[in-house]
Amino acid sequence: MSREFAVPFHWRRFRERYQLIGSKCEHCNGVFYPPRIVCPRCRRRGKVKSIKLSGRGRVYTYTIIRTPPEGFKIYTPYIIAIVELEEGAKILTQIVDCMPDEVYIGMPVKACFRKIKEENESGIILYGFKFKPDTQAKQG
């Protein structure tokens, strides 16, 4: 039932996905994830460079997924959040090592490398970053 993609569909995203690489425009200082070729604010005036993101941030908003898409049933219920990274970019991610009733807006979190899903029985196993509570982060 689920669509099967050829390996390059995922392989070409490994760098940004597995190393948390984003981009920064040196003209406006905007930080973006995933990487962009063109700065959406500066366009031709922009100077876009690769940047390794720290993986630290705070929960900006969240939800608990109770009706999952294919491949995510074993995790259900799970937390999906938009995290605002300390560099300023926001990212959509799962929050793990945290019960659904423990997450809150403003919660400090940090990135951890995890399995995302198995595409299907014959396909490749997909990885990426999820975020977990950052107990070392300063409060506030």
Partner: peptide
Amino acid sequence: ETEAYYGVTFPGIYALIAKRHMH
């Protein structure tokens, strides 16, 4: 590649909006 990939559904997307609006 950056939303559906991580297991968010469409109700989930609007739930993220709702949660922020309620906040």
